[in-house]
């Protein structure tokens, strides 16, 4: 009898479920991109450190592009470029690819900083004990350098988690996109946005505080 009422229905328990599912998708796409991006970024960081001139002329400027163009533009561009080269990627896959490269471009600098933080004297000492190059990297550079840049890496990871909201531009229904859909239907923008914001905050705030506390402790 009154179709408009069912259309603009209020916020209900199913909507909460819908938001929860979307929040899981936000976490999933972030987790995937951050993990792969960190590994690739660490390798790039090592190349930047070891490669010196050659890497400075090749890898560095390419990574720089991903830090100098808005993520949203990168996403749209890649999503529309993939079919041109014969790749048929859904929004999720496109999102993961770009978020991963984006993460890698940020992690590369962090990783290079980590290796530089270890310092030549310490590495010479390791090598003088008879460690191979890889042993030095694994047992000296990774623990010491990793510790030095861990807080910076947390910052990058949390940034990517928040930026994953932009994948919504491709139609992937993560948390913010889900909120937007619900707002259109329920006309309860304040409640729904508060819920979404609280989720991001609850994830990001404790982790960033923990990283800051670690940084303080390690600094002593």
């Amino acid at each position: 009898m009154q179709p408009t009422v069912t259309f603009f229905s209020g916020f209900n328990i199913n909507d909460l479920w819908f938001l929860g599912e979307a929040a899981l998708r936000t976490m999933w796409i972030s987790l995937l991109s951050i993990s792969i991006g960190t590994v690739i970024g660490a390798i790039f960081g090592w190349i930047l450190y070891e490669g010196k001139l050659a890497a400075t002329l090749t890898v560095a400027p390419i990574l720089d592009i991903f830090r100098s163009v808005p993520l949203i533009i990168q996403l749209v561009l890649f999503y529309n470029f993939a079919p041109i080269i014969g790749l048929n990627l859904d929004p999720f896959a496109s999102g993961v690819v770009i978020l991963t490269i984006y993460t890698a471009s940020l992690v590369a600098n962090v990783a290079r900083g980590g290796i530089e933080a270890v310092g030549t004297p310490m590495r010479r000492a390791a090598r003088s004990l008879g460690m191979t190059y890889w042993q030095d990297l694994r047992h000296v550079v990774l623990p010491i350098g990793g510790r030095a840049v861990f807080p910076a890496w947390v910052g990058v990871a949390l940034g990517v988690m928040k930026d994953s909201a932009l994948v919504s531009v491709l139609g992937y229904v993560e948390l913010l996109k889900a909120s937007q859909i619900l707002i259109t239907r329920t006309q309860e923008p304040f409640l729904i946005l508060t819920l979404a914001g609280a989720f991001y905050f609850a994830l990001s705030y404790p982790i960033s505080r923990y990283a800051a506390a670690l940084e303080k402790r390690w600094a002593q």
């Binding site: 909201a165 932009l166 913010l176 946005l193 991001y200 905050f201 960033s208």
Partner: peptide, 10 residues
């Protein structure tokens, strides 16, 4: 804290 811990899009 809100500015730093939620997405800019939010």
């Amino acid at each position: 804290e809100v500015a730093r811990n939620t997405p800019a899009l939010f």
